[in-house]
Simulated scan of single mutants.
Amino acid sequence: MSRRHSFYARPLLAAAAAVTVLAGTAAAAPADASPGRYTATAAALDDTYYQDAVGKTGAELKAALHTIISDQTKLSYSQVWDALKATDEDPANSSNVVLLYTGRSQSKNDNGGNSGQWNREHVWAKSHGDFGTSTGPGTDIHHLRPTDVQVNSTRGNKDFDNGGSELGSAPGNFTDSDSFEPRDEVKGDVARMILYMAVRYEGTDSFADLEPNDQVNNGSAPKMGKLSVLKQWSQEDPPDTFEKRRNDVIFDQFQHNRNPFIDHPEWVGAIW
């Protein structure tokens, strides 16, 4: 089972209000974009947001979830900077964000492309399907995360798998010529982001049909592996408070859609 950092231990604050899906054009991050509350209980989500998916499995479940989560507000790539400052805010320091692979807490304003800064990591590598930074998969903050510039470069567009040599600049992360293994604390997060992308982007909106497969070295194909490992990571590292809160901030303040595998981790096995 994955280890947890102490800043992930905030208690869950659940509100029983029903959830409403919003639409429109995203604005820059609002001033009150603080990660301190939860939108609804699981039961309320099932009765409202997920009502057309509950009880289904396999291809029917995947199709239902695709329809649900495709109702979203889309951000520009420049808006992603401000969005990540809200979604990945350090609960222990509201001036900082928590970087995905290193777990380092760093100033929100120390972002850019220089060594030691943080930048925008596409967890589903943008070359896998050639969507770049176009509005859509290239700006979907369910899989965009703040990461250390150098670690982001080391990961590159590699698929995910176990093994390799440990990164000296990011202990707990491993890499080899064709794959990247994130630290234990975010293995499940990575898996659920990849599987979200596979459900959200099905080739019906001018972008490629993104799908997981059970291999690495996928290159520019719209595939990401390694599915068997991602499923294992999702099971061994279930959603924690930080990840659940992030899902709520995205839903409440930015895209107004959810990652269903954070709300229902069991749906990973129900589809794949």
Rank of each mutant, 00 (worst) to 15 (best):
V21N: 05
T25S: 11
A16W: 05
P35C: 15
G24Y: 00
L65A: 03
D71C: 08
I69P: 03
A43G: 08
A18M: 01
K62F: 01
A9Y: 05
G24I: 13
R37K: 10
A15R: 09
A23S: 14
D52M: 09
D71N: 12
S34I: 07
A44V: 08
D52H: 12
A64W: 08
L22S: 09
D71T: 11
S34V: 10
A15G: 09
I68E: 00
A18G: 01
A28G: 12
A53V: 08
Y8A: 11
L61T: 08
G36F: 00
T39Y: 00
V54I: 13
A63Q: 05
R10D: 06
Q72G: 08
A18V: 03
A44I: 06
A9I: 02
A40I: 02
L13D: 06
D32S: 14
T25H: 07
A31K: 14
D32K: 11
D32P: 06
T41K: 03
T57W: 05
P30F: 07
A17Y: 01
L45K: 12
L45Y: 12
A28S: 13
Y8I: 12
A44G: 07
V21Q: 12
D47H: 06
G36C: 08
Q51V: 15
A28W: 00
D52F: 11
Y8R: 13
A31F: 13
G24T: 15
A33V: 00
A23G: 15
I68P: 01
A40W: 01
P11T: 15
A40E: 01
V21W: 13
A42L: 10
I68Y: 08
A27W: 03
A14R: 02
Q51C: 14
A33S: 07
A26I: 03
A27C: 14
A28H: 03
T20Q: 01
A18I: 02
A23C: 15
A26G: 11
Q72H: 14
A33P: 00
G58C: 03
E60V: 10
T57K: 12
Q51A: 15
E60T: 12
T20V: 10
L61H: 06
A28E: 10
A42M: 07
T41A: 04
A15N: 10
Y38F: 05
Y38W: 07
R37N: 03
T67N: 09
K56V: 02
A16E: 10
A43V: 06
A17Q: 04
A53Q: 02
V19F: 03
I69V: 15
I69L: 09
T57Y: 07
I68T: 10
A43K: 06
S34M: 04
T20K: 01
A27F: 04
A53N: 03
L22F: 13
L45G: 04
D46M: 13
A40Q: 03
A59C: 03
A59N: 08
S70E: 08
A64T: 11
